[in-house]
C-alpha cells in the first residue's frame, strides 16, 4: 500500500487537506511521530506535514496579547517569549534536549498535551489560549477547556492548531521542574506560577503536574494571593511553610495515588517557584 505525504505550503491548502482526509496523520516537528512504533504508524497511509506552512510561523503582538504560530519550535518560543511570558519561555527551555527543542513545536506539544509534559502547567498558569482553525473559520479556546480528559483534547477532525495566544507582560512568572535528570527526561513534578499584576489587586495563578496532567491549585492560589496583598514584596518564611502544607494537601486530595515522596517534592518545587515570583517584586 502506497503512502501519500502531503506538504502544503499555505494554510488554506493544509485546511483543505485536513478536511478531505480527517484520518491522515498530522505532523509538524515530527519528534513524536518518529518515536512511535512503526506498527502503530502502519495504519496511516496519508500524512499531512505542516512544517512548510508559512502562516504557522507567524507571530504578532497586540497591546495585551502576544500570539505565536503553532510551528514555533520550543527553542524559538523560548527566545521570543523570554521577557513577555517568562513562565512559558522557561518551560520551553526545560524540554528534553537542545536537539528536541530545535525541532519539537508548540502545536505538537499542545496537540499531545501529555500528562507529564513541561508546557501544560505553564500554559495554565499564564492563562494561554489555543487558536484552532478549519475551512469555516477560527475559534479561540482557553487552555482550560482544551484537555477534556487525559489524552483527549477538543481538536475537531477538520481543525488544525494554528497559534497560541498569551496575555503579555502581566507580572512576575516562574516555572520549575524536577526530573530524574535535567535533560532528556520529562518532569516528575513541575510548577508554574504567574502573578497577574495588571489587576487592581494582583492575583496569583498556580498550576502543576505530578505526572497526572496539569491542573490549577485554586486553594493555594487564594492563599498566595491574600498573603501577597498583606505582606508586600518579601515572602516571610512562615508563608512558605504554610504554602507547602496547602500544596501537599491539595495534591493528596487531587489523587490518592500520588506517593508521599512525590507530594513533598512537588510542594518544595512549588515553594521555590513562589519565592522566585514573589521576590521579583519590581513588577508589583
Amino acid at each position: 500500500m502506497g503512502t501519500d505525504w502531503f506538504r502544503p505550503i499555505s494554510l488554506e491548502e493544509a485546511l483543505e487537506l485536513r478536511m478531505t482526509y480527517p484520518d491522515a496523520y498530522l505532523l509538524c516537528g515530527a519528534t513524536h511521530l518518529m518515536t512511535q512504533p512503526r506498527t502503530a504508524l502502519s495504519q496511516y497511509t496519508r500524512f499531512i506535514d505542516l512544517s512548510r506552512v508559512e502562516q504557522l510561523y507567524g507571530c504578532h503582538t497586540e497591546e495585551c496579547v502576544i500570539q505565536v504560530g503553532a510551528a514555533f519550535s520550543y527553542a524559538r518560543a523560548a527566545d521570543f517569549l523570554a521577557s513577555t511570558v517568562p513562565a512559558v519561555a522557561q518551560a520551553c527551555r526545560s524540554v528534553g534536549t537542545p536537539q528536541v527543542r530545535n525541532k519539537g513545536t508548540l502545536g505538537g506539544a499542545v496537540a499531545l498535551s501529555l500528562p507529564n509534559a513541561d508546557l501544560p502547567p505553564a500554559l495554565l498558569a499564564v492563562g494561554a489560549e489555543v487558536v484552532l482553525t478549519s475551512t469555516v473559520g477560527s475559534r479561540v479556546l482557553p487552555i482550560e477547556a482544551w484537555v477534556c480528559e487525559p489524552s483527549q483534547t477538543s481538536l475537531q477532525p477538520d481543525e488544525i492548531i494554528t497559534a497560541l495566544r498569551f496575555p503579555r507582560d502581566q507580572g512576575p512568572q516562574a516555572y520549575h521542574r524536577l526530573g530524574r535528570r535535567a535533560a532528556f527526561c520529562f518532569p516528575e513534578v513541575a510548577a508554574a506560577i504567574a502573578i497577574d499584576a495588571t489587576l487592581p489587586s494582583p492575583y496569583v495563578r498556580i498550576a502543576m503536574t505530578v505526572g497526572t496532567g496539569a491542573f490549577r491549585l485554586l486553594h493555594a492560589e487564594q492563599f498566595a494571593t491574600e498573603a501577597l496583598s498583606m505582606m508586600g514584596t518579601e515572602p516571610p518564611e512562615e508563608i512558605g511553610m504554610e504554602f507547602y502544607g496547602i500544596v501537599e494537601e491539595t495534591l493528596a486530595a487531587h489523587s490518592a495515588e500520588i506517593p508521599e515522596v512525590v507530594r513533598t517534592s512537588a510542594a518544595a518545587v512549588a515553594v521555590r517557584t513562589l519565592q522566585e515570583v514573589w521576590s521579583d517584586g519590581d513588577h508589583l
Partner: peptide, 27 residues
C-alpha cells in the same frame, strides 16, 4: 529515539537528531 544524541547533525545550521527527521521532510 532522540535520547542519545549520537546522530546529531545540522539541518540549515540547526542542531537536530537525524533519527527524528523523516526523509519526507528533507526536501
Amino acid at each position: 529515539t532522540g535520547h542519545c544524541g549520537a546522530c546529531s547533525v545540522l539541518i540549515d545550521e540547526r542542531l537536530v537528531n537525524a533519527c527524528l527527521v523523516p526523509a519526507a521532510q528533507l526536501q
